[in-house]
Design a protein around this nucleic acid. Structure first.
Lengths: 216, 216
DNA sequence: TACTGTTTAAAACATACGTTTAGAATGACA
DNA sequence: TGTCATTCTAAACGTATGTTTTAAACAGTA
């Protein structure tokens, strides 16, 4: 009503960034093919051609959504790993299995449960992206593999009885538990006939880490 | 060249069945939206309108693919459960955790590894179907939930210390390991830098059961 | 102001999609 | 044989898709 305050469009960030945010959300809930460029641009409030302008193609957009956060998550994993290793060293002991697995699982689970706003969508997006062959996701996995390789020596030290092959299989299984938990978190209530109410991020993480620790 | 033997179209089963087979394969490798009716009918060698003729719609086809095998798999799970329970009773002991989990995981894993030809595709299809919201898969899960409820008393007896909630969470995690293993079996070689060659169905099942047993 | 590169806008393009329709072929049975 | 329901075929319909094109609006700079 004052009619004079220079609003300066406070919400409207970069159009490019807005497209990424919206795509992240839509791709988290639907497959690559089921999300149309038009639905993205409409939800982002930009022109249809903006996607091709900024990302070249729909495919380019999909990969851009991935790239924006992947490196950050894997850095966070390594940060936790080295922080934990340093602490253990200071205390003159080995890193525990629990700490190792926690370092792998905490970033995605915490992000999922909205400790970092907006990132939870990325986690769901990521789990879905694994199934999209159209998006050429092998180099995506490669980045995760590199991170896991950094974890490997610690696992070997804790579990000298296991072969490298055994360890890889178990890491594989761990990722399975995690991705499934992320993708189907809402289904635990269906499975349990509504008796399992939603829990906090830390509780979920602990359940997950417990299960994976024992599995290892 | 004899030109007289009545060939009787030996390969060409029901067109309906052929469509289901082809759809199973295509939906196993791609999302609902990414698989076109035309690609299905072309691969099945039938007319375009056959899908709508037999199944009403693309959606109807998708659900038909699911229904064709779902009941069979869950029956097989229950059969293993009761068979195992009977054997244990005869031996005057409780069912072991290993047997319980084996009964849940053996049918899908064995089918995956082609012990029953053709069914492996269904397993991959199933894991993917969980992600398709378009296909209204809640009543699908409901059927699995009913099966798991049959398992619940046995779990409670073995693990009296666990709450019902704990058990549901662990079943949830188990399904996660299984689905991930099914969907990304080929990726274990990438993860392990090719050191993990493919194993037999029994070996894979054993690894999986081991991991889940310890997690429980 | 005039020039420049960047960003947004509207429209059109060519293709692919799921579905429908009208009719031909088929096979079983009278 | 003729009749009838079932199965298959070809063509078309209307719509939605990813992408391209052309030009206008904008912001910074000399």
């Amino acid at each position: 009503m004052t009619g004079k305050i220079p609003v300066k469009q406070p919400v409207k960030q970069n159009a490019r960034e807005r497209i990424l945010d919206v795509s992240e959300k839509l791709f988290a809930n639907g497959s690559f093919a089921s999300v149309s460029v038009r639905s993205v641009t409409a939800a982002a409030g930009v022109n249809l051609s903006a996607v091709n302008y900024y990302f070249g193609s729909k495919q380019g957009l999909f990969q851009a959504v991935y790239i924006r956060r992947a490196t950050l998550m894997n850095h966070e994993r390594l940060r936790l790993l080295y922080e934990t290793a340093e602490k253990a060293r200071a205390e003159g002991r080995d890193v525990s299995l629990r700490e190792l697995i926690g370092a792998m699982l905490t970033p995605p689970i915490f992000w999922l449960c909205e400790e970092k706003p907006g990132f939870s969508l990325y986690i769901r997006f990521l789990a879905r992206a694994y199934l999209e062959e159209a998006s050429d996701m092998d180099h995506v996995l490669r980045q995760e593999v590199d991170v896991f390789d950094k974890f490997l020596p610690y696992f070997r030290k804790i579990k000298p009885g296991l072969s490298e092959k055994d360890i890889y299989w178990r890491i594989h299984f761990m990722m399975g538990v995690m991705h499934h938990t992320i993708n189907h978190l809402h289904r635990i209530s269906l499975l349990s006939h509504k008796s399992c109410k939603s829990e906090t991020a830390a509780q979920t993480r602990d359940r997950l880490v417990d299960f994976c620790c024992d599995g290892f």
